[in-house]
Design a protein around this nucleic acid. Structure first.
Length: 316
DNA sequence: AAGGGTCTCAACCGCAGCATA
DNA sequence: CTATGCTGCGGTTGAGACCCT
């Protein structure tokens, strides 16, 4: 009945990851692609459970992550989307390429919540904070600036699904703030909505690196197989360029590929081991799909779309 | 300079829904 | 159809960094 347990949880390490563990995990994934997380720790020689590996990769090691604080524009998008979706961080994150749900959640709790309270806005309801006691709930005052007047009540804090959310509506304020660029926001809203954990299963054979149309140039020192693979092992949402023109990654601090912007850590230099043979994967679990993934073609096709989105961000 | 308080964020926990045998 | 395992997600925690007195 059922499946094999993912891990026995006995003798597994917990707590902060060491550089050595990071190295093992990155090395393994760059060399072998992402297959079943359950099998990763065993194959990578890690005393961690697959869940922990997945989290570490998606929240910290993924090469396409942006680092640093959210920009004002990103913050605004988060606020608007939160007004629509509530605490559905993964959905919100899917609209912010290079950001993880965990990162957005943290930023919300540590920065945005305070900011909104300071502005007299209830971060839960996105309505003006009620003045002390004896106040009937749900007053009808107009919504504050930056909050969509038509934004429905965010779902209750519990994990209940909002009534309808097939298409995430573009925040009205964002739309209004961009009269001539509606299509760009629409594009944003229609962009492949990948949650940060929804990294497509990949195998090195699947990695497709755009060769024409000037892909983002890599720093000379990092133009190695590892870097290329690192750049390619990413969700389609990350194939955008953060620069407004051409396709160069010029803003280091905003680079979706932190290792590219700052140079790969030394330990990545001679990383990328020979990939596991399919039979090794087989030994562990299912064989990975070996045909080229159309996902990355789509990603590359939407390359310019994201360039436009970036322009939109900078116009806030 | 030291001690204490506050803040930040990586990582863990546990639940819900889905997949599979 | 049922039992069990897996994955994804949101909430929470706690160690380290930072700030203030």
């Amino acid at each position: 009945m059922g499946r094999q347990p993912c891990c026995d949880k006995v003798g597994l390490k917990k707590g902060p990851w060491t550089a050595e563990e990071d190295q093992k995990l990155v090395s393994f994934i760059l060399g072998n692609g992402q297959c079943c997380w359950r099998a990763v720790p065993k194959l990578a020689g890690l005393l961690r459970c697959g869940k922990s590996c997945r989290l570490r990769w998606t929240n910290y090691l993924r090469p396409d992550l942006k680092r640093g604080l959210l920009s004002d524009a990103e913050e605004k998008v988060v606020i608007d989307l939160h007004a629509q979706l509530g605490n559905r961080w993964s959905k919100i994150a899917s609209h912010l390429p290079g950001r993880t749900d965990n990162e957005i959640k943290n930023h919300w709790n540590t920065h945005i919540k305070k900011k909104l309270k300071k502005m007299g806005i209830d971060p839960l309801t996105h309505k003006p904070l009620l003045p002390p006691p004896q106040q009937p709930p749900q007053q009808q005052s107009p919504p504050p600036a930056g909050v969509s007047p038509e934004a429905p009540q965010p779902p209750p804090p519990e994990r209940t699904k909002p009534p309808e959310e097939k298409t995430v509506p573009v925040p009205a304020t964002a739309m209004e703030s961009n009269e001539h660029g509606d299509d760009e926001l629409l594009l944003l809203s229609k962009s492949p909505g990948f949650c940060t954990d929804e990294v497509p299963m990949m195998h090195p054979d699947e990695i497709m690196v755009p060769l024409n149309d000037q892909p983002p140039p890599l720093p000379a020192s990092t133009c190695c197989a590892a870097t290329t693979a690192a750049a390619a092992v990413s969700t389609p949402t990350t194939s955008y360029s953060t620069s407004g023109s051409s396709s160069c990654l010029t803003r280091d601090e905003d680079s979706p590929f932190p290792y590219m912007a700052t140079g790969l850590p030394e330990w990545l230099d001679d990383m990328v081991p020979p990939p596991l043979s399919p039979s090794t994967w087989h030994d562990c679990l299912l064989p990975p799909p070996l045909s080229p993934s159309p996902v990355y073609e789509d990603a590359f096709n939407s390359y310019h779309q994201f360039q436009r989105n970036d322009a939109l961000f900078s116009s806030y």
